[in-house]
């Protein structure tokens, strides 16, 4: 708003009156200032205002190489001919300029790969973001040299899952990954050694809900299996055993207890272990 409001009308020195949209001289009618700011209701929801102070733009994200701060040259059907061709050239140059180094290019590729993996495994966004920042730190530590990007992408996703307490088995990750088992292993070892991942042994409880829903078991079975898994974890029964085998055994035991039909083979197949592994844990659980 202009200063003239305090001084009076610039033409006749009359008194100024301001209503919601403009400042008018009360005596001569001169419009001194028109308010271009719309004081009307803002056309958006204020539901999340106290949690999210942002007003515009996409949020910053660690899962993009430029943290989501990229710009793009848009398209318009109104621009024709020479100008259109010029814009197309500019767009091409702009896209090329987005990636400045080999390092960044690798990052873009790995991040796309991580996105694909987390999408295929239906992992939440925070796991994806964590996987991406793991990759970023790995790159800063020069761990990627001589190891494959695909391996690192899948290892980062695997590690992020473990850290977040929603472990996936290596086989599950490898099933959707482009990496071979060796590449994945090498990358995960490097991550674990040099970044010191805060991971302990996997608790079989993390596997139980997923296996239960894959086997289409009732929630009562799942609940009992979870109890068994927690017990076995606490009592040290699970120590030194394959956690997915323990999870399968817990499900099998729970199903037996509740008289639900489930064969050892079915349970073992979902967990990717042999029925023999399952059986040995089952005997211990029963005792």
């Amino acid at each position: 708003m202009s200063k003239s409001q305090a001084t009076g009308c610039p033409e006749c020195d009359g008194r100024l009156r301001t209503n919601s949209s403009e400042t008018v001289c009360a005596s001569c009618g001169l419009v001194v200032a028109a308010d271009h700011i719309d004081h009307g209701p803002e056309w958006r929801s204020f539901a999340d205002d106290d949690t999210n102070p942002e007003r515009t733009g996409a949020p910053l994200t660690r899962s993009r190489h430029d943290r989501g701060l990229s710009t793009e040259i848009g398209r318009s059907s109104r621009i024709k001919g020479r100008k259109r061709r010029r814009l197309a050239r500019m767009r091409r140059q702009h896209n090329r300029a987005r990636i400045s180094s080999k390092r960044e290019r690798n990052q873009v590729y790995a991040f796309t790969e991580i996105r694909r993996l987390t999408g295929a495994l239906s992992l939440p966004d925070r796991v994806r973001d964590h996987a991406c920042s793991l990759l970023r730190s790995a790159q800063n530590e020069n761990l990627l040299r001589g190891r494959s990007l695909e391996g690192f992408s899948s290892a980062c996703v695997y590690a992020a899952c473990r850290v977040a307490g929603v472990s996936r088995t290596v086989d599950e990750v490898l099933a959707v990954s482009r990496a071979t088992e060796n590449e994945h292993g090498a990358a995960y070892d490097a991550l674990n050694r040099d970044l010191g991942l805060p991971v302990g042994p996997i608790s079989p409880t993390e596997y139980v809900p997923r296996f239960a829903s894959e086997l289409d078991l009732a929630s009562s079975v799942e609940r009992r299996a979870r109890e068994l898994a927690a017990e076995s974890h606490d009592s040290g029964l699970a120590a030194g055993r394959n956690p997915s085998g323990v999870a399968a055994a817990c499900l099998y035991t729970a199903a037996r207890e509740l008289d639900v039909k489930l064969t050892q083979k079915e349970a073992a197949d979902v967990a990717g272990v042999t029925p023999v592994t399952l059986r040995s844990t089952y005997y211990d659980l029963r005792d």
Partner: peptide, 9 residues
């Protein structure tokens, strides 16, 4: 819905 723990309901 796919939960974070991987189970689907």
């Amino acid at each position: 819905v796919r939960e974070a723990d991987g189970s689907e309901e």
